[in-house]
């Protein structure tokens, strides 16, 4: 069977929810960051699939994907810098250890 729009949408939605699940359950900061990357990749897949099957005449989806990849890199850079700093002060990258602020 030829893979079509529905297969791609199924994969991307599954990826999205795996990302959300990972973000909410994992306690390691790097893994949480990876979950966010999963979410962003599912969105990229969505855009490319819609562009190919639903709106073949448009180019907006492909362009959007390129921008998402760039922004994801910027976000990961800042996040990793923050995590390194957190590791210096807390000696851990577990979210539970960084629990000073409460109330």
């Amino acid at each position: 069977m030829e893979p079509g729009l529905y297969h791609l949408l199924f994969i991307s939605t599954a990826l999205f929810f795996i990302g959300v699940f990972g973000f909410l359950t994992r306690r390691n900061l790097i893994t949480m960051l990876m979950s966010i990357e999963l979410i962003l990749n599912s969105v990229c897949l969505n855009f490319v699939a819609f562009n190919k099957y639903v709106w073949p005449g448009e180019l907006d989806g492909v362009f959007f994907t390129v921008f998402i990849i760039a922004i994801a890199a910027a976000e990961a850079a800042v996040a990793i810098a923050i995590i390194i700093n957190l590791y210096r002060s807390h000696r851990s990258i577990d979210v539970e250890v960084a629990g000073e602020l409460k109330g």
Binding site: F23, M32, I36, E75, A79, I82, L86, A98, L101
Partner: peptide, 16 residues
């Protein structure tokens, strides 16, 4: 640093 970590993770999640 804890505040910055919470900010970047929650805002990245929101933008996802």
């Amino acid at each position: 640093s804890e505040a910055a970590m919470k900010m970047i993770l929650s805002s990245a999640f929101a933008s996802g």
